[in-house]
């Protein structure tokens, strides 16, 4: 098969980011770049600071030191919705969907920040709000079609199996039409077939929409297969960075995963 989208310039630059919770230094001067259209994996043992890193990127945590530059804009304090407005969307390690709402409605919430009409117009329903709703619905339907979840469009997500819930969550993130997609363990707890599906969707998203993807994943075969580059964290520090092949043979990485004899 021929090459995917060409990897572009730096989209996101993480520079010397540190954050501590009490005495725990969750991230210690971590720096790395994410280039446009690439798939970057962050790996590391439990408690290495992977989720904290994602939380910093989308503005949920505020780094105590260092800076994050996204699309050329440098920032230190930023709220999550501002990150979302700038084009960052994410999924969560523990699924965070509205269980009682349908798949369709859940994905529709991904469009929330793009809705321009105010509450009163929406309450009126007819007129501009309806037109806008139809446009948003079209985007959502595109996502539903993309993820092949037509058959569960109207099913409350609480009733769906785990693997499908993960897919709906991905759908909600995609509905925001992000430039940068953060995936926190998208394949955790899935069986082999579900994983295969998810891998295909992640590659297709990257391929078809050119979305840049940063993902945390424990399944090494997946990480090695789909990532362009890998960043390895251990105890809050970056211990390696490079292509999957480079990282695979890195002695620090092997030590971090297998432990070192003393």
């Amino acid at each position: 098969m021929s090459p995917r989208n060409k990897i572009g310039d730096v989209l996101l630059a993480v520079d010397g980011v540190s954050i501590s919770f009490g005495g725990v230094r969750a991230l210690d001067k971590v720096s790395f770049d994410v280039r446009a259209h690439e798939i970057l994996a962050i790996i590391g043992p439990n408690g290495a600071g992977k989720s904290s890193m994602l939380n910093c990127i989308n503005g949920f945590y505020h780094p105590q030191e260092g800076s994050i530059t996204f699309k050329g804009q440098r920032r230190r304090q930023m709220q999550t919705h501002e990150a979302a407005l700038q084009g960052i969307a994410r999924t969560f390690q523990n699924i965070a969907l509205f269980k009682g709402m349908s798949t369709l409605d859940n994905i529709m919430t991904g469009r929330n920040l793009k809705m321009k009409r105010n509450f009163l117009w929406q309450a009126l329903y007819f007129g501009p709000a309806l037109r806008e709703e139809l446009e948003h619905r079209a985007v959502v339907e595109n996502v539903i079609d993309f993820l092949e979840i037509e058959s569960i469009r109207k099913t409350p997500v609480g009733r769906l199996p785990y693997g499908l819930q993960k897919r709906v969550e991905l759908g909600r993130a995609l509905a925001a039409e992000p430039d940068l997609l953060l995936l926190d363990e998208p394949m955790a707890g899935m069986n082999y077939e579900e994983k295969e599906d998810m891998v295909r969707f992640i590659l297709d998203v990257n391929d078809e929409f050119g979305t840049t993807i940063v993902l945390i994943e424990h399944d090494m075969s997946v990480v090695m297969d789909i990532s362009d580059r890998v960043v390895v964290l251990d105890y809050g520090r970056k211990i390696a960075e490079g292509t999957p092949d480079q990282v695979r043979v890195n002695q620090d990485v092997i030590d971090a995963y297998l432990g070192v004899g003393h």
Binding site: M1, S2, P3, R4, F146, D204, D207, E208
Partner: peptide
């Protein structure tokens, strides 16, 4: 065409 754009 989904997934086929690079099948050259």
């Amino acid at each position: 065409p989904r997934g086929l754009q690079h099948y050259d």
